[in-house]
């Protein structure tokens, strides 16, 4: 029984231990610190239904968002009385697919509250979204004064209180489905800006540093899922249009609003931090707006 190790074995072992003791923690630290902090899925394609299915499959299927016999609240963008092909509102085809899938996955109901900018009747009608929601079995409404609830925003810098649609606040599953387009004051309308359609006093935001208010509200509201409609994007004369359109034919899926918005900004040829509210939200640690640290998975559907 020769239990003694040779000198060579000893030296090799010693070297291996030294190397691993120095390097492994560094590798572990590197993995936690400078690797991707959030993941977004960019689905390329032309059929919203298939794109939606592909994106949700990557995120673990509808079952990881929709709880059986509970409501789903869908915050889309139906702000303007403009036609679907003008890109002022979320695509009605996408909305229809999404509501159908939610209901198929066992949701008790899909509720779509939207405080539009144009008159609700015109906006819901001309955008085609009112009909799409009805066809697919959802319930869309324009919130009245009594359907808002005052909330405090603990981490808000400029926006410390807001009246928010009660359904949005109480949603077991909250899906944010904005359309990507330009905006005269916030540069771009993306997922974080989309929440302005769920609050009652938009004027306050505009008068008290809009970008800061958007970032403030994002510290408060936590959607379960974000799907940005970038099938066609309005590149001029936003948010109402009509303006020039570009056709990236993409849907952007994620759970980190800052990362999703940061990627969507690049579709307009902008750096994420050119959009002030993305920078502010990143600095307030709402999410990660630095695309170098975001894992972006491109999928064709």
């Amino acid at each position: 029984m020769n239990a003694r190790i040779s000198r060579r074995q000893f030296m090799t072992g010693l070297a291996a231990t030294a190397v691993s003791s120095v390097c492994l923690p560094r590798m572990a630290w590197a993995a936690s610190g400078s690797g991707p902090t959030s993941t977004i899925y960019v689905i390329h394609g032309s059929d919203p239904g298939r794109m939606l299915a592909a994106g949700i499959a990557r995120l673990g299927g509808w079952g990881s968002f929709v709880k059986p016999r509970q409501n789903v609240v869908l915050k889309l963008n139906a702000a303007w009385a403009s036609l679907p092909e003008q890109g002022g509102n979320t695509s009605p085809a996408l909305v229809e697919c999404c509501i159908q899938e939610c209901l198929r996955s066992g949701a008790a109901a899909v509720v779509v509250p939207e405080k539009s900018c144009s008159s609700a009747k015109d906006a819901f009608e001309r955008s085609g979204i009112g009909a799409a929601v009805k066809r697919s079995g959802g319930r869309m409404y324009s919130p009245e004064r009594h359907q808002f609830q005052r909330v405090t925003i603990p981490r808000g810098v400029n926006l410390k209180e807001a009246d928010v649609v009660r359904d949005v606040l109480e949603a077991p599953c909250l899906i944010n489905m904005p359309v990507a387009k330009t905006h005269g004051s916030s540069t771009l309308t993306l997922s974080m800006k989309n929440w302005m359609g769920s609050v009652s006093d938009r004027g306050y935001w505009h008068a008290h540093n809009l970008h800061q208010c958007i970032a403030d509200f994002s510290t408060f509201i936590k959607p379960s899922l974000i799907i940005v409609d970038a099938l066609r994007i309005m590149t001029t004369h936003g948010p109402q249009g009509p303006g020039k359109l570009a056709y990236p034919n993409q849907l952007i899926f994620g759970t980190d609003p800052v990362a999703v918005d940061a990627y969507a900004a690049t579709l307009f040829g902008k750096q994420p931090f050119d959009v002030l509210y993305i920078k502010l939200a990143h600095d307030m640690e709402v999410g990660c707006g630095d695309l170098k640290q975001v894992r972006i998975v491109h999928v064709d559907a």
Partner: peptide, 21 residues
């Protein structure tokens, strides 16, 4: 608010249906 206080306002631009702002 935009001219006088340098706020990112432009609500008028947002709401104008005729692109007159």
């Amino acid at each position: 608010l935009a001219w006088n206080e340098a706020q990112y306002c432009m609500v008028c631009h947002e709401f104008c249906s005729y692109q007159a702002v």
